[in-house]
Amino acid sequence: MSSKKDPQLPAERKGRFSRRGFIRGVGIGGGALGAGLLEKEATAAPPAGGVVGPGAIPITLNINGKPVNVSVEPAVTLSDALRDYLDMTGSKRVCDRGTCGACTVIMNGKSVYSCTVLAIDAQGKNIETIEGLGGPDKMHPVSQAFWNNDAQQCGYCTPGFVMACKGFLDEHPNPSPEDVKHGLGGNLCRCGTYMGVRKAVLEAAAAMKGAKKNG
Protein backbone atom coordinates (compact mmCIF):
# COMPACT_ATOMS: atom_id res chain seq x y z
CA MET A 1 0.00 0.00 0.00
CA SER A 2 1.29 3.37 -0.85
CA SER A 3 0.12 4.83 2.43
CA LYS A 4 2.69 2.78 4.35
CA LYS A 5 5.39 4.09 2.14
CA ASP A 6 4.45 7.72 2.18
CA PRO A 7 7.50 9.81 2.86
CA GLN A 8 7.67 11.99 5.93
CA LEU A 9 5.83 15.23 5.63
CA PRO A 10 8.09 18.21 5.24
CA ALA A 11 8.98 19.31 8.77
CA GLU A 12 8.69 23.02 8.13
CA ARG A 13 5.03 22.65 7.26
CA LYS A 14 3.94 20.85 10.40
CA GLY A 15 2.02 23.06 12.78
CA ARG A 16 1.88 25.91 10.39
CA PHE A 17 -1.50 25.09 8.90
CA SER A 18 -4.30 23.20 10.49
CA ARG A 19 -6.48 21.28 8.08
CA ARG A 20 -9.68 22.98 9.24
CA GLY A 21 -8.10 26.40 9.26
CA PHE A 22 -6.79 25.84 5.81
CA ILE A 23 -10.18 24.86 4.44
CA ARG A 24 -11.87 27.77 6.23
CA GLY A 25 -9.35 30.07 4.64
CA VAL A 26 -11.13 29.48 1.34
CA GLY A 27 -8.78 27.01 -0.18
CA ILE A 28 -6.02 28.57 -2.00
CA GLY A 29 -5.46 32.11 -0.86
CA GLY A 30 -2.50 32.69 -3.06
CA GLY A 31 -0.21 34.78 -0.88
CA ALA A 32 -0.13 32.69 2.27
CA LEU A 33 0.14 29.49 0.37
CA GLY A 34 2.84 30.60 -1.94
CA ALA A 35 5.00 31.60 1.00
CA GLY A 36 4.24 28.61 3.20
CA LEU A 37 4.70 25.85 0.71
CA LEU A 38 7.76 27.06 -1.06
CA GLU A 39 10.28 24.48 -0.05
CA LYS A 40 12.88 24.82 -2.71
CA GLU A 41 13.26 26.93 -5.76
CA ALA A 42 10.92 25.53 -8.35
CA THR A 43 12.17 24.24 -11.62
CA ALA A 44 10.28 23.65 -14.82
CA ALA A 45 9.28 20.21 -16.07
CA PRO A 46 12.08 17.64 -15.93
CA PRO A 47 14.41 17.86 -18.90
CA ALA A 48 13.33 15.80 -21.87
CA GLY A 49 15.13 12.49 -21.88
CA GLY A 50 16.59 13.19 -18.47
CA VAL A 51 16.12 10.72 -15.66
CA VAL A 52 15.10 12.06 -12.24
CA GLY A 53 14.45 10.47 -8.86
CA PRO A 54 13.89 8.12 -7.16
CA GLY A 55 14.44 10.83 -4.51
CA ALA A 56 12.31 13.94 -4.19
CA ILE A 57 12.50 16.57 -6.89
CA PRO A 58 11.02 20.06 -6.94
CA ILE A 59 7.99 20.47 -9.18
CA THR A 60 5.46 23.22 -9.87
CA LEU A 61 1.76 22.46 -10.11
CA ASN A 62 -0.80 24.91 -11.41
CA ILE A 63 -3.67 24.44 -8.97
CA ASN A 64 -6.84 26.50 -9.29
CA GLY A 65 -5.00 29.08 -11.35
CA LYS A 66 -2.02 29.50 -8.98
CA PRO A 67 1.44 28.01 -9.32
CA VAL A 68 2.36 25.92 -6.28
CA ASN A 69 5.84 24.58 -5.63
CA VAL A 70 6.37 21.27 -3.91
CA SER A 71 9.08 18.65 -3.67
CA VAL A 72 7.95 15.06 -4.24
CA GLU A 73 9.36 11.70 -5.27
CA PRO A 74 8.30 10.56 -8.75
CA ALA A 75 6.27 7.79 -7.05
CA VAL A 76 3.95 10.32 -5.34
CA THR A 77 0.50 10.58 -6.90
CA LEU A 78 -1.29 13.85 -7.48
CA SER A 79 -3.84 12.80 -4.87
CA ASP A 80 -1.12 12.29 -2.24
CA ALA A 81 0.64 15.50 -3.26
CA LEU A 82 -2.57 17.48 -2.80
CA ARG A 83 -3.56 15.87 0.49
CA ASP A 84 -0.29 15.06 2.23
CA TYR A 85 2.04 17.75 0.92
CA LEU A 86 -0.24 20.68 0.18
CA ASP A 87 -2.92 20.23 2.85
CA MET A 88 -5.65 20.32 0.22
CA THR A 89 -7.71 17.51 1.69
CA GLY A 90 -10.89 18.23 -0.23
CA SER A 91 -10.37 15.44 -2.74
CA LYS A 92 -10.48 12.12 -0.90
CA ARG A 93 -8.32 9.04 -1.11
CA VAL A 94 -10.69 6.10 -0.85
CA CYS A 95 -9.98 3.15 -3.13
CA ASP A 96 -6.66 4.61 -4.31
CA ARG A 97 -6.95 2.35 -7.39
CA GLY A 98 -8.71 4.52 -9.96
CA THR A 99 -12.17 3.14 -9.38
CA CYS A 100 -14.29 5.00 -6.82
CA GLY A 101 -13.92 8.60 -8.02
CA ALA A 102 -13.56 10.25 -4.59
CA CYS A 103 -10.21 11.74 -5.62
CA THR A 104 -11.54 13.27 -8.86
CA VAL A 105 -10.00 16.56 -9.97
CA ILE A 106 -10.14 18.29 -13.34
CA MET A 107 -6.95 18.39 -15.38
CA ASN A 108 -6.88 20.49 -18.56
CA GLY A 109 -10.68 20.48 -18.58
CA LYS A 110 -11.11 16.70 -18.17
CA SER A 111 -12.09 14.87 -14.98
CA VAL A 112 -9.38 12.44 -13.85
CA TYR A 113 -8.65 10.23 -10.85
CA SER A 114 -5.88 12.07 -9.00
CA CYS A 115 -4.83 8.80 -7.30
CA THR A 116 -3.87 7.49 -10.71
CA VAL A 117 -1.86 10.48 -11.95
CA LEU A 118 1.73 10.96 -10.85
CA ALA A 119 2.21 14.45 -9.40
CA ILE A 120 5.28 14.88 -11.60
CA ASP A 121 3.08 14.19 -14.65
CA ALA A 122 0.60 16.88 -13.62
CA GLN A 123 3.14 19.64 -14.20
CA GLY A 124 2.15 22.11 -16.87
CA LYS A 125 -1.52 21.13 -16.56
CA ASN A 126 -4.38 23.28 -15.26
CA ILE A 127 -5.55 21.43 -12.18
CA GLU A 128 -8.94 22.32 -10.70
CA THR A 129 -9.76 20.96 -7.25
CA ILE A 130 -12.81 21.23 -5.04
CA GLU A 131 -11.01 23.95 -3.05
CA GLY A 132 -11.19 26.17 -6.12
CA LEU A 133 -14.97 26.04 -6.33
CA GLY A 134 -15.56 28.46 -3.44
CA GLY A 135 -17.06 28.01 0.00
CA PRO A 136 -20.45 28.60 1.63
CA ASP A 137 -20.27 32.36 1.02
CA LYS A 138 -20.00 31.97 -2.70
CA MET A 139 -21.06 28.53 -3.82
CA HIS A 140 -20.44 27.15 -7.26
CA PRO A 141 -23.72 26.23 -8.97
CA VAL A 142 -22.81 22.54 -8.82
CA SER A 143 -22.12 22.66 -5.06
CA GLN A 144 -25.33 24.64 -4.56
CA ALA A 145 -27.32 22.11 -6.57
CA PHE A 146 -25.89 19.24 -4.46
CA TRP A 147 -27.04 21.14 -1.37
CA ASN A 148 -30.49 21.82 -2.80
CA ASN A 149 -31.08 18.21 -3.91
CA ASP A 150 -29.69 16.28 -0.96
CA ALA A 151 -27.08 14.83 -3.26
CA GLN A 152 -24.87 13.79 -0.36
CA GLN A 153 -25.26 11.73 2.75
CA CYS A 154 -22.05 10.84 4.56
CA GLY A 155 -20.32 13.25 2.20
CA TYR A 156 -17.16 11.29 1.57
CA CYS A 157 -17.72 10.87 -2.16
CA THR A 158 -19.08 14.39 -2.52
CA PRO A 159 -15.98 16.42 -3.41
CA GLY A 160 -15.05 13.94 -6.14
CA PHE A 161 -18.62 13.75 -7.36
CA VAL A 162 -18.92 17.55 -7.49
CA MET A 163 -15.72 17.81 -9.53
CA ALA A 164 -16.85 15.00 -11.86
CA CYS A 165 -20.16 16.85 -12.34
CA LYS A 166 -18.42 20.14 -13.01
CA GLY A 167 -16.11 18.48 -15.54
CA PHE A 168 -19.10 16.83 -17.19
CA LEU A 169 -21.11 20.06 -17.38
CA ASP A 170 -18.15 22.03 -18.74
CA GLU A 171 -18.17 19.62 -21.67
CA HIS A 172 -21.93 18.97 -21.86
CA PRO A 173 -23.73 22.19 -20.88
CA ASN A 174 -27.12 20.89 -21.97
CA PRO A 175 -27.28 17.21 -20.99
CA SER A 176 -30.22 14.81 -21.19
CA PRO A 177 -30.93 12.57 -18.17
CA GLU A 178 -29.42 9.70 -20.18
CA ASP A 179 -26.22 11.72 -20.83
CA VAL A 180 -26.00 12.37 -17.09
CA LYS A 181 -26.10 8.65 -16.29
CA HIS A 182 -23.33 7.88 -18.77
CA GLY A 183 -21.32 10.99 -17.91
CA LEU A 184 -21.13 10.23 -14.20
CA GLY A 185 -20.30 6.55 -14.44
CA GLY A 186 -16.92 7.04 -12.82
CA ASN A 187 -17.98 7.83 -9.26
CA LEU A 188 -19.35 5.56 -6.56
CA CYS A 189 -21.54 6.55 -3.60
CA ARG A 190 -22.01 3.83 -0.99
CA CYS A 191 -24.88 5.76 0.62
CA GLY A 192 -26.67 5.60 -2.73
CA THR A 193 -27.36 9.27 -3.38
CA TYR A 194 -27.32 8.80 -7.15
CA MET A 195 -30.88 10.04 -7.65
CA GLY A 196 -30.05 13.29 -5.84
CA VAL A 197 -26.82 13.66 -7.80
CA ARG A 198 -28.61 13.22 -11.11
CA LYS A 199 -31.19 15.85 -10.15
CA ALA A 200 -28.43 18.16 -8.96
CA VAL A 201 -26.57 17.95 -12.26
CA LEU A 202 -29.64 18.87 -14.28
CA GLU A 203 -30.40 21.75 -11.91
CA ALA A 204 -26.78 22.96 -12.04
CA ALA A 205 -26.86 22.79 -15.84
CA ALA A 206 -29.88 25.11 -15.88
CA ALA A 207 -28.32 27.42 -13.27
CA MET A 208 -25.03 27.65 -15.15
CA LYS A 209 -26.76 28.52 -18.39
CA GLY A 210 -28.67 31.21 -16.52
CA ALA A 211 -25.45 32.51 -15.06
CA LYS A 212 -23.93 32.75 -18.49
CA LYS A 213 -26.92 34.66 -19.83
CA ASN A 214 -26.79 37.13 -16.96
CA GLY A 215 -23.04 37.48 -17.19
Binding site: P46, A48, G49, G50, V52, P54, P74, A75, I120
Partner: peptide, 15 residues
Protein backbone atom coordinates in the same frame (compact mmCIF):
# COMPACT_ATOMS: atom_id res chain seq x y z
CA UNK B 1 4.50 2.02 -4.49
CA UNK B 2 8.23 1.41 -4.54
CA UNK B 3 10.37 4.40 -5.42
CA UNK B 4 11.48 4.57 -9.05
CA UNK B 5 13.46 6.70 -11.44
CA UNK B 6 11.33 8.71 -13.82
CA UNK B 7 12.36 9.39 -17.39
CA UNK B 8 10.65 11.80 -19.71
CA UNK B 9 11.86 11.13 -23.27
CA UNK B 10 10.74 13.27 -26.20
CA UNK B 11 11.16 10.66 -28.94
CA UNK B 12 10.43 6.97 -29.43
CA UNK B 13 14.13 6.28 -29.95
CA UNK B 14 15.04 7.91 -26.65
CA UNK B 15 12.26 6.02 -24.91
Amino acid sequence: MQPFEYANPASVQEA
